[in-house]
Design a protein around this nucleic acid. Structure first.
Lengths: 110, 110
DNA sequence: TTTTAATACCTTGTATTGCATGGTACTAAA
DNA sequence: TTTAGTACCATGCAATACAAGGTATTAAAA
């Protein structure tokens, strides 16, 4: 149980990154995102996602558009903006650096 | 500047993991840890580290011993316990999963 | 001897943020 | 017209990283 907390914390840190990775490839609305993230073992709930999307939108990295649905209320589809794409490039670099860091720490030998 | 925040957040999530990776290989006291982490671009300050080490110790993952210093007050050297080692194995698994997750999300194609 | 500088420990207060919970609104079917 | 399903969003709490400041020990300088 202690482990799950740290496991969760690891995943938290890359949550924004994951969202942007997904939205780069397909417009999605919140239940879409939750499903996709669940498939990737990133368990996330609405209460986390909505504020996060709001922040990313307010930063100019995301936009959205409404789409009618045949089975319920309209859906808010988020998509990545050009600024979001370049932000994503930086996150790619951050991620690579982080991988490199962990690799280094695993092989401290001096 | 926005990037640095997310970059930092990514690194936060694996901070405990990094600490344990280091302590598995050498006993260290706080200024040691800060130096090593700085070399790995994980910028961390005392105010973060002390409470974190306290938590890990209280969870049984770390122990410590005092050592005299020739250049100042005695140092508190932390080391990893057997429980810490097995916790670390779980974190290794979490990290591998996280890498796998990101890899998957980068190649969503359906 | 007294003071200063360096080193190392630790605590407190603040801000961020993920999550649990609950609320509102639209659609379709019973 | 009521109920169930779907989707949006907001509020309050808890965890935690960090900034800032405080205490204690040692050694060297005054």
């Amino acid at each position: 149980m202690e482990n799950e907390k740290t496991n969760a914390q690891m995943r938290k840190g890359v949550l924004e990154y994951c969202i942007l990775l997904i939205l780069k490839q397909r417009k999605s609305y919140v239940p879409d995102l939750i499903d996709l993230l669940k498939q990737s073992k990133m368990v996330v709930v609405e209460g986390t996602l909505y504020p996060l999307l709001m922040r990313l939108k307010n930063s100019g990295y995301l936009g959205y558009e409404w789409q009618e649905s045949t089975s319920g209320p309209p859906r808010k589809y988020y998509f990545i903006t050009p600024e979001g794409e370049s932000f994503l490039l930086e996150l790619d670099a951050s991620w690579r650096e982080l991988e490199e860091t962990i690799h280094q720490l695993k092989t401290l030998n001096n």
